[in-house]
């Protein structure tokens, strides 16, 4: 993969701990999370119904969809609780000079 696949999301202080921000790039939406042990990124739309996860609840390592309470593991993308049954795509994240980058394939 080439270096240019790393896309800058914003500064590390733009996200509170145990919270997330939405990041739109081209025609796609992502969620970038700050957990106690670092930053993570997933697709921004729930796999159950087309709703933005940006309004969801982050608890420990999980994001819960605000519409129907499907739960995903933020680090692995695994769908943990129905009605969600399809996993959420995750993306590599790096921090460089207090800036967050995600790698989009």
């Amino acid at each position: 993969m080439s270096e240019e696949n790393w896309i800058e999301v914003g500064s590390t202080d733009s996200i509170e701990e145990e919270d997330l921000i939405r990041f739109d790039h081209q025609d796609k939406t992502f969620c970038v999370y700050k957990l106690t042990d670092g930053f993570y990124a997933t697709d921004g739309i729930c796999t159950h119904e087309a709703v933005h996860l940006e309004d969801g609840l982050v608890m420990d390592d999980e994001i819960e969809c605000p519409m129907h309470q499907g739960i995903f593991n933020i680090k692995s993308g695994e769908a943990l609780s129905p009605p969600a049954c399809e996993d959420l795509k995750t993306y590599p994240v790096k921090v460089d000079n207090d800036k967050i980058f995600i790698k989009i394939d």
């Binding site: 709703v51 309004d55 969801g56 609840l57 819960e64 969809c65 605000p66 519409m67 309470q69």
Partner: peptide, 11 residues
């Protein structure tokens, strides 16, 4: 509007 109350209701 869709997405605006779910988190608070869950909490």
């Amino acid at each position: 509007i869709i997405g605006k109350v779910g988190r608070d209701i869950r909490i």
